[in-house]
Simulated scan of single mutants.
Amino acid sequence: MSTAELHTLTGAYALHALPDDERVAFERHLGVCGACAQEVRELSATAARLGLAVSAVPPPALRDRVLREITTVRQEAPSHARGSRPTASPGRTGRWSTYALAACVAAAAAFGGVAVWQNQVAQDARQEAARAQLHNERVAQVLTASDARTSASDLAGGARGTVVVSKSVNRAVFLASDMAPPPGGKVYQLWFNDEGTMRSAGLMNPSASDDTVLLDGPVDSASGMGITVEPTGGSEEPTSDPVALMDFQDA
């Protein structure tokens, strides 16, 4: 993908609408393009405000009003029956009206539950968008830092790993390309290398061959990072030989 094309992806990235390969390519581009990083921050903030603006909760009295009007508003006959008298036997009309009324009452009763469910879905979506926005901002902060240092290495199976470290932000970002999926029930775990002592730095997405991970915790005095294969959920300390070891580039 050309640099000119990458410049056009800021909006899609802010809305989390990029496929994994384009997302990873664009996040690498963020490390060298301050203009795109600034535009992503502004678009992400705007998207969050718009999401909050469209949320609406039905008024509490709406359900009661619907139930009241069921008893006073006559149901209109089907279009094919207008102008003709019903031929149903006595008592049948009243029975079907009862069924219709019961269905309307059930629908009205369910309406309150649907409204609550819709509001919960909207709230969950806003929270997820806020978490994603915060993650993107923190990743961009590392990638665009003036003291960001990048180290890259070929990994097993033709994969490629790149780590970007900013001492001023005190965080690191790991970008992986073409990672083979871990064995069933396993996950790739990242580690900070603190002079030979490995400190957990988070888990990779086991279903993504291309991934961008903001390493958990501060860099502090770590001189590099490692990757191991661990049981789902991760381990307190490495339990396998490292898949990769990468040194951080000195400032």
Rank of each mutant, 00 (worst) to 15 (best):
G112I: 02
T150P: 05
S55C: 10
L245N: 10
R41A: 13
A140I: 12
W117Y: 15
Q38L: 10
C33W: 06
D216S: 14
H80F: 13
Q127V: 13
L175V: 11
P218T: 06
S2Q: 04
R131C: 02
E22G: 04
A17L: 11
T228N: 03
R49V: 05
H135Q: 11
M179W: 12
A108I: 02
G233N: 05
N193A: 03
L203G: 00
A103I: 09
G31V: 00
L245W: 07
V73G: 01
S223F: 05
F248G: 00
M1Y: 11
D20E: 13
P182Y: 00
L155K: 00
T212N: 04
T162W: 01
S235D: 01
Q38D: 15
D211R: 00
T232P: 03
S2H: 01
R23D: 01
A148Y: 02
T228A: 02
W191I: 03
V24C: 06
E195K: 13
E230N: 07
S221W: 07
A77Y: 07
T8N: 07
D147M: 04
A180Y: 06
V73K: 12
G157P: 03
R92K: 15
V40Y: 05
Q38T: 15
M179I: 08
R126S: 14
A109F: 12
A61Q: 14
G157S: 08
G83Y: 04
L203Y: 01
G184C: 05
A48M: 10
S44F: 01
V40E: 00
T212F: 00
L203S: 05
M204V: 08
A208E: 10
L62E: 15
E42L: 13
R95G: 04
L134V: 08
T197L: 09
R131N: 09
W117R: 09
Y13T: 00
R23F: 07
V165F: 01
R95V: 03
F26M: 03
V121L: 13
L50F: 07
C36L: 04
S166R: 04
V163Y: 03
